[in-house]
Amino acid sequence: MKIRKILAAAAAMTILVSGCGGSGMDTAEIEALLSKAKTTMATVESMAAEMTMEMDMGMNGETIETTTLAKIRSQQNPLKMAMDMSMVMSDGTEVDQMQMYAAEEDGHLHTYMSTADTWYAETLELGELSQYNAEENMDLYLDNITDVTSGGQEEINGAKATKITGVITGDAMEEAIAGSGLTASAQSMGISEEMMADLYDELGDLPVSLWIDAEGYVLKYELDMTEMMQKVMNESMKAMGASEEDLLVEIEKTAITMVCSDFNEVEEIVIPEAAMRVPMGEHVHAE
């Protein structure tokens, strides 16, 4: 029972985290493709995305796998988002399901979340939903990816895209990890800013992969956060008063994948009237 409680606590943190051909591209060609992607993505004012967050972890021979799925539509300047999210356990059990809308106003985000037949309204800072803002994350990765190599071409949603693999380092790595939602999750589990700073010092580079089509659109990106999550898990368990035995939680996989589409083709996002009627900071049971 104790093991299950620890694994369940770890799984909760994820709500807050095809074959390829040969390379055939030299460094100059890769840099040219990345530059084209920066130019193309700068023209994107709306898009759709499907995010998958996978976490596999185990302890004493028991393994738990969780997959969090989110279907997202977003518009920029000002930011507007609509999202449907669900979390599924390895046995197919759906742990949580929610619908969320967000709209930028006066430098903040007004958010409306529906779960268990109840609407919740809350005001957030602009960066607090950055893990769901694929366009914002792409800008960070395109500007800061280093040590790049080409993994050949793959097909993403019926379109050919070149896979570019590299790493994010330094301050950009910290921003990318914060943007993934991992930092906020760690802090909610008792990890202080000072402890997170120490973890950043211990961590190596953050692996990232981008799939870019011929026009420069980023059709997919993926982060491998397994090493970072293992360190966060260890510190979180200590903060919760876990014993040395309890700290033997192995993070086998933590990956965030975002598949993007409908560039500049998303229809106007409309927040439901039932949500708009809820005062900020309150909740109302749906009729």
Rank of each mutant, 00 (worst) to 15 (best):
M1I: 10
K5E: 15
A8I: 07
A10I: 12
A12H: 07
I15P: 00
I15E: 15
L16T: 14
G19Y: 01
G22S: 13
E31C: 03
A32K: 13
A42H: 02
V44F: 04
E45A: 12
A49P: 00
M51R: 11
D56V: 13
D56R: 09
G58M: 08
M59P: 00
E62P: 00
T66Y: 09
L69C: 06
S74R: 05
A82I: 01
D96A: 14
D96V: 06
Q99K: 07
M100P: 01
E104F: 08
L109Y: 07
H110Q: 11
D117S: 13
D117T: 03
D117F: 06
T118G: 09
T123A: 13
L124A: 06
E125D: 15
L126Y: 06
L126K: 11
G127E: 13
E128M: 12
N133P: 00
A134D: 10
D139P: 00
Y141V: 13
D143P: 00
S150W: 01
S150P: 00
I156T: 08
N157M: 08
K160I: 08
A161Y: 02
K163H: 06
D171Q: 13
A172K: 03
M173H: 05
E175A: 15
S180P: 00
L182A: 15
Q187G: 07
G190C: 07
I191E: 07
E193S: 15
E194S: 15
M195V: 14
D205P: 00
L206P: 01
D213H: 07
A214G: 08
A214C: 02
G216T: 09
V218M: 08
M225L: 15
M228S: 11
M229H: 06
Q230Y: 05
V232R: 04
M237D: 06
K238F: 06
K238C: 04
A239W: 01
E244K: 08
E245Q: 13
D246Y: 02
L248G: 11
T257D: 10
S261A: 15
D262K: 05
E267C: 03
E267N: 06
E268G: 02
V270E: 15
P272K: 03
G281N: 07
V284F: 03
